[in-house]
Amino acid sequence: VEVSPDIYQQVRDELKRASVSQAVFARVAFNRTQGLLSEILRKEEDPRTASQSLLVNLRAMQNFLNLPEVERDRIYQ
């Protein structure tokens, strides 16, 4: 799965849209901590040159964001 270069903005938009914390998003989207998500968003590494471990996390976030909005909102509950 190709990771979109605007994945970082997509995540920020989703945090605002759903009014969820980084901690909640990190847990449900890719089963990691708020600290890691914060670092990923701060660095904004180009997905095309990202490490394998970062790509795994970015893909998981993208797959989560590809779910229908209704389903994502249900998962946040």
Score class of each variant (00 low, 15 high):
residue 36 L to K: 15
residue 76 Y to M: 01
residue 55 L to C: 07
residue 40 I to K: 02
residue 71 E to S: 10
residue 66 N to T: 12
residue 50 A to D: 03
residue 9 Q to V: 14
residue 16 K to W: 04
residue 32 R to Q: 13
residue 66 N to H: 12
residue 17 R to P: 01
residue 52 Q to C: 07
residue 57 N to R: 07
residue 57 N to E: 08
residue 64 F to Q: 01
residue 66 N to K: 08
residue 48 R to T: 09
residue 18 A to R: 10
residue 72 R to P: 02
residue 37 L to T: 03
residue 51 S to D: 11
residue 30 F to Y: 03
residue 61 M to P: 00
residue 50 A to N: 03
residue 54 L to A: 11
residue 72 R to C: 01
residue 55 L to M: 13
residue 54 L to E: 09
residue 4 S to H: 10
residue 4 S to Y: 14
residue 29 A to V: 12
residue 28 V to W: 03
residue 3 V to L: 13
residue 28 V to T: 11
residue 47 P to C: 04
residue 61 M to S: 02
residue 26 A to E: 13
residue 66 N to W: 09
residue 40 I to P: 02
residue 30 F to D: 04
residue 68 P to V: 04
residue 15 L to D: 00
residue 28 V to C: 13
residue 39 E to T: 06
residue 21 S to N: 12
residue 19 S to P: 11
residue 72 R to E: 02
residue 31 N to M: 06
residue 22 Q to E: 13
residue 20 V to F: 01
residue 15 L to N: 00
residue 40 I to M: 15
residue 66 N to S: 13
residue 31 N to V: 05
residue 55 L to T: 09
residue 62 Q to G: 06
residue 41 L to F: 03
residue 56 V to M: 09
residue 20 V to A: 04
residue 3 V to H: 05
residue 36 L to T: 13
residue 29 A to M: 06
residue 41 L to C: 03
residue 29 A to G: 06
residue 38 S to Q: 14
residue 27 R to P: 03
residue 66 N to D: 14
residue 55 L to E: 08
residue 71 E to T: 10
residue 71 E to I: 04
residue 22 Q to I: 05
residue 3 V to G: 05
residue 74 R to G: 11
residue 34 Q to R: 12
residue 49 T to G: 10
residue 23 A to R: 11
residue 70 V to E: 12
residue 48 R to N: 14
residue 63 N to E: 13
residue 54 L to K: 07
residue 10 Q to W: 06
residue 32 R to S: 13
residue 20 V to C: 11
residue 20 V to W: 03
residue 2 E to T: 08
residue 19 S to N: 15
residue 64 F to T: 02
residue 48 R to S: 14
residue 19 S to M: 13
residue 37 L to G: 03
residue 28 V to R: 03
residue 31 N to E: 09
residue 59 R to A: 09
residue 50 A to F: 02
residue 37 L to C: 06
residue 1 V to Q: 12
residue 12 R to G: 03
residue 74 R to V: 10
residue 33 T to H: 14
residue 53 S to R: 10
residue 3 V to W: 03
residue 8 Y to E: 01
residue 48 R to M: 10
residue 15 L to K: 00
residue 44 E to T: 07
residue 49 T to N: 11
residue 42 R to N: 10
residue 16 K to L: 15
residue 28 V to M: 06
residue 71 E to D: 06
residue 30 F to K: 00
residue 20 V to E: 03
residue 20 V to N: 00
residue 38 S to T: 14
residue 43 K to L: 09
residue 29 A to T: 13
residue 36 L to I: 10
residue 77 Q to M: 15
residue 45 E to M: 06
residue 43 K to H: 11
residue 76 Y to N: 02
residue 13 D to E: 15
residue 6 D to E: 11
residue 20 V to L: 11
residue 14 E to A: 01
residue 63 N to C: 14
residue 35 G to H: 14
residue 42 R to T: 14
residue 52 Q to Y: 07
residue 11 V to P: 01
residue 77 Q to S: 13
residue 5 P to T: 14
residue 43 K to P: 01
residue 37 L to E: 01
residue 51 S to Q: 09
residue 6 D to G: 11
residue 41 L to E: 02
residue 54 L to S: 10
residue 33 T to M: 05
residue 11 V to Q: 03
residue 75 I to E: 15
residue 25 F to W: 10
residue 24 V to D: 15
residue 68 P to C: 07
residue 8 Y to V: 03
residue 22 Q to V: 10
residue 70 V to W: 08
residue 46 D to G: 05
residue 8 Y to Q: 00
residue 75 I to Y: 12
residue 28 V to Y: 06
residue 54 L to V: 13
residue 7 I to Q: 03
residue 59 R to E: 12
residue 66 N to A: 07
residue 57 N to M: 09
residue 18 A to P: 07
residue 5 P to C: 15
residue 37 L to K: 00
residue 33 T to F: 05
residue 62 Q to K: 13
residue 11 V to G: 00
residue 15 L to Q: 04
residue 17 R to S: 01
residue 77 Q to A: 14
residue 37 L to W: 03
residue 13 D to Y: 14
residue 27 R to D: 15
residue 44 E to V: 06
residue 11 V to N: 00
residue 44 E to N: 11
residue 74 R to M: 12
residue 70 V to R: 12
residue 29 A to Y: 00
residue 52 Q to D: 11
residue 23 A to K: 15
residue 64 F to E: 02
residue 21 S to Q: 04
residue 38 S to Y: 14
residue 52 Q to E: 10
residue 21 S to A: 03
residue 12 R to A: 03
residue 51 S to G: 11
residue 64 F to N: 02
residue 67 L to G: 03
residue 17 R to A: 00
residue 29 A to C: 13
residue 6 D to L: 08
residue 47 P to E: 02
residue 9 Q to A: 08
residue 37 L to D: 05
residue 20 V to Y: 03
residue 40 I to R: 01
residue 33 T to C: 07
residue 13 D to K: 15
residue 43 K to D: 14
residue 20 V to P: 00
residue 51 S to V: 07
residue 65 L to Y: 02
residue 34 Q to S: 09
residue 4 S to V: 08
residue 52 Q to S: 11
residue 16 K to Q: 13
residue 54 L to P: 00
residue 49 T to Y: 15
residue 6 D to N: 11
residue 73 D to S: 05
residue 67 L to N: 09
residue 24 V to A: 08
residue 47 P to R: 02
residue 47 P to G: 02
residue 36 L to C: 14
residue 60 A to R: 11
residue 46 D to K: 05
residue 19 S to E: 14
residue 13 D to C: 03
residue 20 V to S: 02
residue 53 S to V: 12
residue 34 Q to K: 08
residue 75 I to N: 04
residue 27 R to G: 06
residue 57 N to H: 14
residue 74 R to I: 08
residue 71 E to K: 09
residue 57 N to Y: 08
residue 37 L to V: 05
residue 20 V to G: 02
residue 28 V to I: 05
residue 61 M to T: 06
residue 53 S to H: 07
residue 75 I to H: 08
residue 5 P to N: 08
residue 4 S to L: 08
residue 47 P to M: 04
residue 48 R to L: 12
residue 75 I to T: 08
residue 16 K to I: 13
residue 75 I to G: 09
residue 35 G to L: 11
residue 50 A to C: 11
residue 35 G to M: 14
residue 52 Q to W: 08
residue 8 Y to K: 01
residue 60 A to C: 12
residue 70 V to G: 13
residue 2 E to D: 11
residue 67 L to Q: 12
residue 4 S to D: 14
residue 33 T to P: 07
residue 72 R to Q: 00
residue 71 E to H: 12
residue 60 A to E: 14
residue 49 T to C: 14
residue 27 R to T: 12
residue 31 N to T: 07
residue 46 D to M: 04
residue 1 V to F: 06
residue 3 V to T: 06
residue 52 Q to I: 14
residue 27 R to Q: 15
residue 76 Y to A: 02
residue 63 N to F: 05
residue 47 P to L: 10
residue 25 F to Y: 03
residue 71 E to W: 04
residue 8 Y to T: 01
residue 74 R to Q: 10
residue 26 A to C: 05
residue 5 P to L: 08
residue 34 Q to F: 08
residue 5 P to I: 07
residue 33 T to S: 13
residue 10 Q to H: 07
residue 66 N to Q: 11
residue 66 N to L: 14
residue 46 D to N: 10
residue 58 L to T: 02
residue 11 V to Y: 00
residue 72 R to H: 01
residue 61 M to W: 01
residue 66 N to I: 05
